[in-house]
Design a protein around this nucleic acid. Sequence first.
DNA 1: TAATAAATGACTGATAGTCGGTCATTGTTT
DNA 2: AAACAATGACCGACTATCAGTCATTTATTA
Lengths: 209, 209
Amino acid sequence: MTDSRSLFGGALAIIVDKEQKRIDIALSCKDLFIAKGIKNITISQIAQEARVGKGTIYDYFKNKEDIVFEIVNILMAQFNATKEQRINEATSTKAKIKIFFDFFYNPDKADLREIFKEFVSISLTQPNSDIQEFLKDTFERYYGWFCAILQEGIDKGEIQPIAIDLARGFFVLGDGLFVTGVMTGTTHNIQEEIALHINTLFQLIEVKQ
Amino acid sequence: MTDSRSLFGGALAIIVDKEQKRIDIALSCKDLFIAKGIKNITISQIAQEARVGKGTIYDYFKNKEDIVFEIVNILMAQFNATKEQRINEATSTKAKIKIFFDFFYNPDKADLREIFKEFVSISLTQPNSDIQEFLKDTFERYYGWFCAILQEGIDKGEIQPIAIDLARGFFVLGDGLFVTGVMTGTTHNIQEEIALHINTLFQLIEVKQ
DNA sequence: TAATAAATGACTGATAGTCGGTCATTGTTT
DNA sequence: AAACAATGACCGACTATCAGTCATTTATTA
């Protein structure tokens, strides 16, 4: 844990990489959050799981919600790292879009979705400026990306220009299915539902040869 | 409060209409929930606002979340009561659909949305069987209704049959916009966004004369 | 040894939820 | 009509729990 040193002036004591330790603590209790949910964990349990004292948790996090935020940040960063590549591998616009939405159904991402669910719950009722900023950035980035995929499809002559006007509502499809899916307990066939919707929409917006 | 009596055997004491009192308590603290949010209210404050003792709250509700659930139930029932009429007043299918989504933008329903937001947050992470049932019923009912509106439009020759395949994704539009809107703090122009999406979609699914 | 950063867990204040007891109302008995 | 019995409604003091703080200890380096 004690690895990086202050470069300014003489460091007189242990200097830990605060950022790294924050990550270590967050990851060490990730499974606990996924298994039990934020409401059913205590800070003491978290501290125990992370092998640190209770007070130490507060040296690195504002509160429980802040830990969830960190976990989401870490997992999202990992997710984003591979996402671009996976989308680029697809050839058609339709395939790209399906992959674009795979966050919502990819079995490998079940953990991320579970934490994301907690995060959405927090974001709805107790957002802070960091969360707001994160959400806004993430949204804009993905939405811009989604529009770029559509535009590319238009430029290539695959889909009609009208697709751009559908972008916003289209983009929100995943969120809507996710939330209603979780709430009604019908998350099993989200992949099919997304596929059906995209296929149907493509019947309408595809450029006829 | 003391009105109905047990009909079986001799009733020996005051009998209050439990259902009505549950409603009275819920409504009396509705504004408190809207103003502060569930996290920032204590049961004591709620009891004070409702002019009852703290213990009495627990005679009628399991916990704070249960109160939010009751408020949502009440407001939704009021909302539903007028919804059918408002939709029937519209003539075209497109107009009906726009009204169908007005939950998400009608200024008169801001209170309902505020409570609904809390309710969604709760439903995501601490659902119980009552909540699950409520959500499932509500969902099925509205989805069935939405499909019926589309089908009617198809039967009338207003829109193409393909619209039915879009129903699920289309239906989820409001939820998606609502959640992302709240999370990114961009709830102001939901009405326009819904209108744009519907108009665009109608360009594609309308039956050309 | 002095200086400083990091870590800690006992402590505090707040609050959710419980429980034993009181009160109000009405049926029953005399 | 008075006394009593039975019961549901109501309540707030009490308990248990837990988030968050802070005085103290430990570790490291010069």
